[in-house]
Design a protein around this nucleic acid. Structure first.
Lengths: 204, 204
DNA sequence: GCGCAACGCGACCGATCTGTCTCGTAAGAT
DNA sequence: ATCTTACGAGACAGATCGGTCGCGTTGCGC
C-alpha cells in the first residue's frame, strides 16, 4: 500500500495491475469460472508462475477483480453525488441515469457482483462475500439518500430502489438493448413519487 | 408426447422424469455448470449410458430443466390469475405475493433463468434462449395485466414491474432472508400507484 | 561489479469434466 | 420360448482445469 520505495516494488504493483486488467476483461466477457489461469497469463503477457506469486489462488484474483470494480463503482457514485449535493431527487435521477448508460455501454456484460454470485453457489465463499459487500454498500448509500428525500420510510424506499437497480442489471443480460432496463430512471422516480406522503409534482 | 402405447415407452418417460428431477435438485443447489453428469447419474440411480440415451448432451438436460421450470412458473401464474379474473390490481398483488413466498422458501436458490444466463456467457447458446423465452413470457403477461389497469403506458409499467421482480430474484441471493426482496409487493403497488394518472387510494 | 530476487518459459501433476464404448442381464414383444 | 431392446456397471478416451516446479535470464540493490 503506502509508498513503495524501491523500483522493484513499483514494478510489482504494475504487474499486479496488468494481471487484474487482463482478468477483468476476460472475466467480464466470458464469466469468471469460464476463464482459465493460463488464458489470463497469456492475455496479460505475464508468466503463470509470476501470476501465482502475486495471487496464491485464482479466487484471490477474482476477489481483487471485484474489489477494483467495487472501488470504481463507489468513486463514480461519489462523483455524481458531489454534483447534486443539495438536491437529493436530482442526485437520485443522476445516479440512475449513469447506471442506465453504464448498462447500455457496449463493454457491459452484466453486473460482476450479481454474475459471480450466480456462478459461485456457496454463500460462504470469499467471492460471494466480496459481492455482498458491494451490494450492502449500495443499499446503505440508497438509504442515506432516501432519508434526505422526505419520505415516511427511507429504508423501505431504499430497498425498492435496490430492486429496480439490480433488476436492471439482471434483466439487461436476458433481453438485449431493448430490455426493461430502459425504464430504470422512470421506475426510480415513480417509487419516490409513490413514497411521498401527500403532495405531487414538487422537486425538492 | 401423445399417448405412449407400450409399457416400454411409459417406462422411458419415467426415466426421463427421474433424470430431470435429479438434475433439478443438483442444478438448483450447486449451479448447472458446477454439476457433473456422473453426479446426476449417481443421484438419480440411473446409469450414465442411459442418461445419454435420453439426453444426447448435458446442455439438453439443462434446457429440459429450464423448460420444466418455465412450465411450472406459467401454471402457477395462470392459477393465481384465474382467482382474480376481474380485479387486475388484486391479481398483480397476488402474483407478487406468491413470488415473494417462492423466494423465501428454503429450497429457493435463485431464479434458474437468471442463474443460467449468468453462467452461460454466450448469448446465442440454447440455454440462454430457453431462459430468454421465460422472461419474455413474463414480460408479455405483465404487459397484458398492466393494460387492464387503467394506466397511460401499460408497456412502461410492465417493464418497471419486470425490474422489481427480477431485482427481487437477483438481490435475494446476495443478501439473505432480510434482503430488499421483502419489499417486492410494496414496490409493485407503488409503481402502479405512480402510473395511475391522477386519483389516489382507489382499488379497482 | 557482484549477488540476489523476480521474471519468462514450459513441462508436469492430479483431479475433473463430457462423452463413448463394451458387456452382462433382465424384461417386454411376438 | 425366442428375440429384441433398454438398462446398469464401469472402463476408457480426450480435453481442460488449478496449481507446482525447475531452469535459464534479466535487472535492481548494494
Amino acid at each position: 500500500m503506502a509508498t513503495p520505495g524501491t523500483r522493484k516494488q513499483l514494478r510489482g504493483q504494475a504487474v499486479r495491475r496488468e494481471l487484474v486488467a487482463a482478468a477483468d476483461g476476460l472475466f467480464t466477457s466470458k464469466g469468471a469460472s469460464n476463464v482459465g489461469v493460463d488464458e489470463i497469463a497469456a492475455t496479460s503477457g505475464i508468466a503463470k508462475s509470476t501470476l501465482y506469486r502475486w495471487f496464491p489462488t485464482k479466487d484471490d484474483l477474482v476477489v481483487e477483480f471485484l474489489a477494483q470494480r467495487d472501488e470504481a463503482f463507489r468513486r463514480q457514485w461519489d462523483a455524481v453525488a458531489r454534483e447534486h449535493a443539495e438536491r437529493p431527487l436530482d442526485e437520485l435521477t443522476a445516479q440512475l441515469e449513469w447506471i442506465c448508460r453504464y448498462i447500455a455501454s457496449p463493454r457491459f456484460r452484466g453486473c460482476p457482483f450479481l454474475n459471480t454470485t450466480a456462478e459461485f453457489a456457496d454463500p460462504t465463499h470469499r467471492v460471494r462475500a466480496a459481492a455482498r459487500a458491494n451490494k450492502a454498500d449500495l443499499r446503505r448509500r440508497l438509504t442515506t439518500l432516501a432519508a434526505r428525500l422526505d419520505v415516511a420510510d427511507p429504508a423501505a424506499l431504499a430497498d425498492q430502489l435496490v430492486l429496480v437497480i439490480d433488476g436492471a442489471f439482471a434483466t439487461s443480460q436476458v433481453f438485449g438493448d431493448d430490455g426493461p432496463q430502459r425504464r430504470l430512471v422512470d421506475a426510480g422516480r415513480a417509487l419516490v413519487a409513490a413514497a411521498r406522503p401527500t403532495e405531487r409534482k414538487d422537486p425538492s
